[in-house]
Design a protein around this nucleic acid. Structure first.
Length: 506
RNA sequence: GCGCCCGUAGCUUAGCUGGUAGAGCAGGGGACUCUUAAUCCCAAGGUCGAAGGUUCGAAUCCUUCCGGGCGCACCA
């Protein structure tokens, strides 16, 4: 395509449809008049929200006495022109404020430019605050300047942007068009910073461990693989930080936590994104009972911080997060909801499969005892647990990294926190017996050879660390995205992730 | 991965059992000095997700592909 002279002769011209050329022409026009359409700064501005708060008491038709030097800046969200006067609605962040300009004050040139602004442009204004006859708090513009010219039209002001694909792909537009999305995502931020503060107040220290790992471990999941050129070695994106955090327990840290991304190469759904944020913590010299107390106190405190209440609504149901939460053994839950016992399931898997099939749970002939228990919990027991509940004492086969119970070597000291039928945390007394850990790894290795791609791999360096001696400890993992969904009352994980994973655009 | 649904202008959309696309907002021109979905007048804007097929004729029917949404499965 030949240039039509609007690109300044350097051949740089955004590929824009017809409506874009008008705006490029306007940019040239501004530059010819010595006005830079992409400014460097606009100092000394007052945020629009602050103006609204400061002058909330200002009466209709009244002019603020003290605001001669008021400077405001923001994106033009809408325009209402009146010939020799014009109103614009400005937005900075997620606060709106109206500004008003007329030709008498600005003069013909400046007012002409003011009228030629587009929705989407970013401007700075200086003037005084007043309240219009209709009662709207407004800045009367005495002078103004363009800060950034927008080349693309914003979504429609009344219907907004609904197309989910565009919303996720161009989140920057979504955030402008749907301010409630921004509020929600800010809620997630408050959750994370609240959790940090809560744990630091308890004496936990935040650490960062490798995301690129030579062996993926700490969870049962399929990893992403990558390659380091200089080292010429395969690396995996971590599926959990667990094994590195425990190495730190060996090294002497006694209360640590990490908040960061983990990656699992699995399906995408309403509750799964390939990269997700986990908080894991490890606390030396305590067992899973202390972790339960921490969880049942921390979650309501965070809810209070994010939503202002320790009660949340999930659909029509009110959920009370206040402690204490009941502790229920997996065995008692299976007995209550399926009339099955762990012992019975282990002894007669055919009968267990029969019972599960009657409950419309999809079981396969090759399902092991551990898989059957897992399915029974996920599909039958969890949906029945609405109020916060700790499910405790899992069969050993499900948990290759947790410590077994002193009174029953087939059970491990592990719990999951269940709220509104969803898993909101997974914790256990950490296995610190290196010989036992080696046996568990070897068992997993056999599963792996039998075709279970998610079985844990043997991590010799981790075993070496345990051989130096890891203090007894409790550990916890919480999926931040899912906790944010619960507290913010959203159904899709994409609504708590700024840039959810989508197929690449063409 | 499998099943169901969707894709029309920058955005929100109309378009019936096939007759070759219509609007609102945004953008352009004009009128209007307290409006707020401002109003009024004028003009412009579409390879109807893509490619094949059926047909005299396809946005519409069929097939495949691309992208998305929602269920199911795996996982947190």
């Amino acid at each position: 395509m030949p240039s039509d002279g609007r690109d300044g002769g350097d051949g740089v011209e955004p590929r824009l449809p017809e409506w874009g050329h008008e705006r490029l022409a306007e940019i040239d026009r501004l530059r010819e008049d010595g006005v830079e359409p992409y400014a460097r700064s606009f100092r000394g501005r007052t945020p629009l929200g602050e103006i609204a708060r400061t002058y909330a008491g200002l009466e209709t038709d009244q002019k603020a006495e003290d605001s001669h030097c008021c400077r405001v800046a923001g994106r033009v969200m809408s325009r209402r022109e009146h010939g020799k006067a014009a109103f614009l609605t400005l937005r900075d962040g997620w606060d709106d404020l109206q500004v008003y300009a007329k030709i008498d004050t600005l003069g013909e040139v400046s007012f002409g430019r003011f009228k030629s602004l587009n929705v989407g442009d970013i401007i700075g204004c200086e003037g005084h605050v007043f309240r219009t006859r209709r009662g709207e708090l407004t800045v009367f513009v005495e002078s103004w300047t363009i800060l950034t010219k927008s080349l693309r039209p914003l979504p429609e002001k009344w219907h907004g942007l609904h197309d989910r694909e565009t919303r996720y792909r161009q989140r920057y537009v979504d955030l402008i068009a749907n301010p409630e999305v921004a509020r929600q995502l800010q809620g997630r931020g408050r959750l994370v910073s609240g959790m940090r503060r809560y744990l630091e107040d308890l004496g936990f220290v935040e650490v960062e461990t490798p995301i690129l790992q030579p062996l993926p471990g700490g969870a049962l999941a399929r990893p992403f693989m990558t390659h380091h050129n200089a080292l010429d070695t395969e690396l995996y994106m971590r599926i959990a930080p667990e094994l590195y955090l425990k190495r730190l327990l060996v090294g002497g840290f006694d209360r640590i936590f990490e908040i960061g991304k983990s990656f699992r190469n699995e399906g995408i759904s309403l509750i799964h994104n390939p990269e997700f944020t986990m908080m894991e913590l490890y606390w030396a010299y305590v067992d899973y009972n202390a972790i339960m107390e921490l969880v049942e106190n921390m979650i309501p405190a965070l809810s209070e911080e994010v939503t202002g209440s320790t009660e949340i609504m999930v659909g029509e149901t009110k959920i009370d997060l206040k402690p204490p939460w009941p502790r229920r053994t997996v065995d008692s839950l299976l007995r209550e909801y399926l009339d099955l016992s762990l012992e019975g399931m282990r002894a007669d898997q055919q009968q267990a499969k029969q019972v599960l099939r009657e409950r419309k749970v999809d079981v396969e002939n090759r399902d092991t005892f551990a898989m059957l228990v897992d399915k029974a919990l996920k599909h039958v027991v969890w949906p029945a647990l609405v109020q916060p509940t700790f499910a405790i004492d899992y069969p050993l086969e499900l948990s290759p990294l947790s410590k077994s119970r002193a009174d029953d070597s087939l059970l491990v000291e592990r719990f999951q926190a269940i709220i509104a039928g969803r898993e909101m945390g997974n914790a256990f007394s950490e296995l610190n017996d290196p010989m036992d850990q080696r046996r568990r790894f070897e068992e997993q290795a056999r599963n792996r050879e039998a075709g279970d791609e998610e079985a844990h791999v043997v991590d010799e360096d981790f075993l070496r660390a345990l051989e130096y001696g890891m203090p007894p400890a409790g550990g916890l993992g919480i999926g931040i995205d899912r906790l944010a969904m619960l507290l913010l009352g959203v159904d899709s994980i994409r609504d708590v992730i700024l840039f959810p994973q989508l197929r690449p655009e063409h």
